[in-house]
């Protein structure tokens, strides 16, 4: 049990949190790990809060429940901090990664007494710079890979290139921008 890394994603419908969790499962799989990537399903609408999960382990994973005591939490949309207790159950030695232009110190007071590690990243700025559009999930994927240390950064970049070539086979023009977003994000996560 203890060698499983558990990650919980909070986002809003349409921001790609589910896709990011599946991409993380994909890339961790390619490094030889056992993985789970799954969203919590309900009557989703654009903009409604959604949750997605990852388990990454050296051993076979049998458990099929949601994650209540994650090692890491990713918040793809900072407006969720008002309505959702995003640090609920988060392990004290874990960390939270939030998409915001604020610094970790500034955002801490919005986390209702949470005392663990906080990382921030301005995914909007990175996405708009690299892609010209707001797709926060790609920078957030980089951020969680860096913060969680589930794999080496070089391997992550190499595997993502491979994964995007497959995923965007029909529109190769978006690969470069996505790769750029991933690389900038690795540098800019605080």
């Amino acid at each position: 049990m203890s060698n499983v890394t558990e990650i919980r994603w909070h986002g809003r419908g349409g921001q790609g949190a589910k896709t990011a969790s599946l991409l993380l499962a994909d890339v961790a799989f390619s490094t030889g790990k056992f993985v789970q990537g799954f969203p919590e399903y309900g009557p989703e609408r654009m903009g409604a809060p959604i949750t997605a999960y990852n388990r990454i382990s050296k051993n076979k994973i049998r458990v099929h429940s949601n994650i209540y005591e994650p090692n890491f939490v990713v918040v793809v949309d900072q407006t969720l901090l008002e309505s959702i207790d995003v640090t609920k159950g988060l392990k004290p030695d874990g960390a939270i990664v939030i998409n915001t232009e604020k610094t970790p110190e500034e955002i801490r007071k919005e986390l209702k007494g949470y005392t663990g590690k906080i990382h921030t990243i301005d995914a909007r700025k990175i996405s708009e710079e690299a892609l010209g559009k707001y797709f926060p999930n790609t920078p957030m994927l980089s951020a969680i890979v860096k913060v969680s240390g589930v794999m080496k950064e070089e391997i992550f970049i190499k595997e993502m290139q491979h994964s995007f070539e497959h995923k965007f086979a029909a529109k190769p023009e978006v690969i470069e921008g996505n790769m750029k977003a991933l690389k900038i994000a690795l540098q800019e996560v605080k």
């Binding site: 056992f34 993985v35 789970q36 799954f38």
Partner: peptide, 12 residues
């Protein structure tokens, strides 16, 4: 098989 729990979960 169980809807969503396994149908929509990516696993090895």
């Amino acid at each position: 098989q169980d809807g969503f729990i396994t149908s929509h979960a990516v696993e090895n």
